[in-house]
């Protein structure tokens, strides 16, 4: 069987995000990157499938700048057989729609039985790519999966979803796309031996041309939505210091507490 896992390289959830005034993307200086946690569930599920079913070929796929190979290296260290980086300067300004289109192009013809992704990436939380990839590839999609069983002989999969107040069990004919929800599994970390083996595994890079995508389908031009503004909500306290004789500042303070702070 062939399984593709979509992973996104995102800023560590612990990082304090900063945006330069006027910019429409985060300031990457000093930011450490991780694999988006929901994608880690997807990757772990692929590894578990291989442990259960034996012959499972795992390909990790990421779209992003050259730096995103770090996420793919981690997947290779975890046990992915190979990896694809979809990368092109022309993707600058891409939205989730363009991302999904490019990923679908990279996956097309790969004969993957399962495509696993996180339910959303924790940086922009669009919760769009897994579903859109399925749409572009004309495949069924099951979102928010918390349990997955594959029947290799029948060519089917049964997935469970925990919803608000009830659960669903859904059967689907493969190939299909699944997006992972928290609770699906408990992801392992790369072991030293895996890290060493990953050195020898291949990461193929596919650019726009290799994907057969026209320039007007890419980046900001191909995007369906446009980010107009990006900023970090200000939480800074505006301190006010009253100077002068207590007899003068006390009434002033009472006035401020009542009118500005509105606590009186």
């Amino acid at each position: 069987m062939k399984v593709a896992v979509l992973v996104k390289h995102v800023p560590d959830t612990e990082t304090r995000i900063q945006v330069k005034p006027g910019d429409k993307k985060i300031n990457e200086e000093g930011v450490t990157y991780i694999i988006s946690p929901f994608d880690e569930f997807a990757m772990e599920e692929a590894l578990l499938l291989r442990e259960r079913l034996g012959d499972v070929q795992i390909t990790a796929v990421a779209l992003g700048p050259q730096k995103a190979t770090e996420a793919l290296r981690t997947c290779l260290a975890l046990g992915a057989d190979d990896a694809i980086l979809v990368s092109d300067p022309a993707f600058e300004g891409a939205d989730a729609y363009v991302t999904a289109k490019a990923l679908a192009a990279a996956l097309k013809g790969g004969n993957y039985d399962l495509i696993l992704a996180g339910k959303q990436a924790v940086d922009d939380d669009a919760a769009y790519v897994g579903t859109a990839v399925a749409e572009f590839l004309d495949l069924p999609v099951i979102n928010l999966v918390t349990k997955l069983e594959v029947n290799k002989a029948a060519g089917t999969a049964v997935a469970a979803r925990d919803l608000d107040g009830y659960s669903q069990v859904i059967e689907v004919k493969l190939p299909a796309v699944f997006t992972a929800q928290k609770g699906l599994n408990n992801p392992r970390l790369p072991a030293l031996m895996g890290i060493m083996k990953a050195k020898k595994k291949e990461i193929r890079t596919l650019n726009a041309q290799a994907l057969g995508l026209a320039p007007n389908e890419l980046g900001a031009e191909g995007a369906k939505v446009e980010v107009k503004e990006m900023f970090v909500p200000s939480k800074a306290r505006k301190n006010k210091v009253l100077t002068g004789a207590p007899a003068e500042t006390a009434p002033e303070l009472v006035k401020l507490l009542a009118e500005e702070a509105k606590v009186l």
Partner: peptide, 13 residues
């Protein structure tokens, strides 16, 4: 580089 990857892995654990 591999030691640094291991470090990351141990740190997360």
């Amino acid at each position: 580089d591999e030691h640094e990857q291991l470090r990351k892995s141990v740190r997360r654990f």
